[in-house]
Design a protein around this nucleic acid. Structure first.
Length: 579
DNA sequence: GCCGTTTTCGGCCCGACTGTTTTCAGTCG
């Protein structure tokens, strides 16, 4: 699974940064950035394209970039880049991370003051040497110093699980306390990216000043960064930046589209508009000649005017959604309401907080038809994993409970450890007594790719295993995925009829959208689960669904969107099938 | 540096905000 797309994208980005500092033409710099974006979002492996001499099929890659990317992939080095790097000290590019400090100012500070890294920048600012440079003054100096300090203590990007509730609170408050006609969140949050930088809010109303006033006065506003009648930026606790844009009613749809992004998606839409002699910006879609508005103020009409179906925000990454929308081939994405039950939950029999009865009751109260209780197996000692005898005790309790809860059904399941050698924690005789079997890696995560892959494939070939949980084992911003040939896992899952999980814990989101899409295209079913360790965590389903949607997943692709009888039939068939 | 049912040359998305400026440059998204 040696995908080098990210590596090549970073190389091109770094070249763009250096060219910008050098003072190259903006369009040339942009060409590098555009190509980097494309390559990062590429479904195929850039190295495969290179080997097949197909680099030029990537939009934005022409003769020169083909040669440069090829040289880098072939030799592991790019002479052009090495030469460019030698022109500037290595710490200089890092200055661009300071908000408010772009390439021109960075260059000026370097040229006049010899400042070549963040430490030297801090000293120069504190000593008041920056204010005397052309185009800069005392205010610039103060702002840069403040931003530099903020950068140093900046928390990383916020997880979706924290950003979404904050945004929902802000939207609800604005709806109550500001004279808004419409208010929504936009940005990467609306696209349900796994981490969020700044929160983007959008409001419309007749009195922008009053909306801005109410916004900066909200109780969670710690500091006002900027404020105008069309845009305000503030800091919320924890350093979270929140931007509010205020537009009038007619521009709502265009603004919501524009501020939802992604940037790459928007650039494509604007190109479509330009080709028809139109102009698309955050105020609307207009005829270039007459200036006449073409959209009707709703987001969908922007897409319709451009000859596209409305594209769900989760797909707006310029990864084929525009082409699909043009021919009416967008997927019918799975929705939260399609989910019939949760197939990955824990109780106080192991490391959960609530009893089996409480978990079942909470699932039923959510309107689910079923719940699989999947406590850990004995190898996971830290979680007091169950042995076969305890599991059979749980069997009796589940059977009793199902008498009283019918037609709701508790499925006795397991989250069974895949041991270091690929062996499983229960024998087949025990597994036969269970309604539902899922398997997970919890140990030996630093095994090499070959060993890890074989270990997982062996587990997938057991006829009882219906789902592989959190297939990559990553913890967002904390632990990288273990090394595994996920393409081989997907192939084997397809062959054996095993579903792969989209885990809804905001620190997992595993599979992510990219891999969920790969799995789906290979004909693998997905199981969207919460891995709940308490009744309240059943709520995390929405993050799993959002992530699956980013992977173009439809209801028919989702194991736990099946009604109970079909789920049971599917599980039964699976166990009887050869693999 | 890329790209072409306008073009192989001359375009390339574009508006808001801030600060340092007396009309605009830099930065951001």
């Amino acid at each position: 699974m040696a995908t080098r797309n990210q590596e090549v994208a970073r190389l091109l980005e770094h070249i763009a940064d250096l060219l910008e500092i050098k003072g190259e033409q903006a369009f040339r710099v942009n060409a590098y950035r555009a190509a980097a974006r494309r390559i990062e979002g590429l479904q195929q492996d850039v190295e495969d394209l290179f080997l097949e001499h197909h680099l030029r099929t990537i939009p934005g890659v022409g003769e020169a970039l083909e040669q440069k990317i090829g040289e880098y992939l072939a030799t592991g080095q790019l002479e052009y880049y090495e030469r460019l790097k030698r022109e500037f000290p290595p710490g200089l590019v890092a200055l661009l991370a300071v908000p408010g400090l772009g390439p021109r100012k960075a260059r000026a500070i370097y040229d006049h003051l010899g400042v070549a890294n963040l430490e030297q920048l801090e000293r120069a600012l504190e000593e008041g040497r920056v204010r005397d440079l052309p185009g800069m003054g005392e205010k610039t100096e103060q702002n840069l110093l403040r931003e530099l300090h903020r950068l140093k203590q900046r928390t990383t990007r916020q997880s979706l699980g924290l950003a979404l509730p904050l945004a929902e609170d802000l939207v609800a408050l604005l709806a109550r306390q500001a004279p808004v006609e419409r208010v929504s969140y936009a940005g990467s949050l609306r696209r349900a990216r796994e981490t969020i930088g700044d929160l983007d809010l959008l409001a419309s109303g007749r009195d922008p000043e009053a909306i801005a006033e109410a916004f900066v006065g909200l109780p969670m506003v710690v500091e006002v960064l900027s404020r105008g009648p069309a845009r305000c930026s503030v800091l919320a606790p924890g350093g979270q930046q929140v931007d509010l844009r205020i537009v009038d009613r007619a521009s709502w749809g265009a603004a919501l589209q524009y501020f939802t992004g992604s940037k790459a998606h928007n650039v494509r839409l604007r190109e479509l508009a330009v080709r028809r002699g139109w102009k698309l910006n955050e105020y609307g879609l207009f005829d270039e000649q007459s200036g006449k508005r073409l959209d009707d103020g709703d987001e969908a009409s922007i897409y319709h005017c451009l000859g596209l179906s409305w594209i769900p925000p989760e797909l707006r990454e310029d990864e084929g959604e525009i082409e699909a929308a043009r021919v009416g081939a967008l997927p019918h994405l799975v929705e939260l309401a399609d989910i019939q039950g949760d197939l990955h939950t824990h109780t106080d029999w192991t490391d959960g907080a609530h009893s089996l009865e409480e978990m079942a009751e909470a699932a039923r109260a959510r309107g689910y038809a079923y719940l699989a209780v999947t406590d850990h197996s004995k190898s996971l000692g830290v979680a007091r994993g169950l042995n076969a005898a305890r599991l059979m005790e749980q069997r009796r309790l589940v059977d009793r409970l199902n008498h009283t809860l019918a037609p709701f059904r508790v499925l006795l399941g397991t989250e069974m450890d895949i041991k270091r050698d690929g062996g499983l924690d229960f024998d087949d005789a025990t597994l036969e007594r269970l309604d539902y079997v899922s398997a997970s890696i919890h140990s030996g995560m630093s095994q090499g790719e070959a060993q890890m892959t074989e270990r997982i494939l062996r587990a997938l070939r057991n006829p009882h295993v219906a789902v592989l949980n959190h297939p990559r084992g990553r913890l967002i911003q904390r632990r990288e995925a273990y090394e595994v040939d996920l393409e081989a896992v997907i192939r084997t899952a397809a062959a054996c009829g095993v579903a792969l999980e989209v885990n809804g814990q905001p620190n997992r989101l595993d599979l992510d959208g990219h891999w969920a899409r790969q799995a789906r295209e290979a004909g693998v079913r997905l199981a969207i689960n919460t891995d709940a360790h308490a009744t309240s965590q059943l709520e995390l389903m929405r993050y799993g669904v959002a992530t699956a949607r980013r992977g173009w997943v439809e209801r028919k692709d989702v194991l736990n969107a099946l009604p109970l009888d079909e789920l049971l039939a599917t599980l039964r068939r699976k166990r009887g099938a050869e693999c």
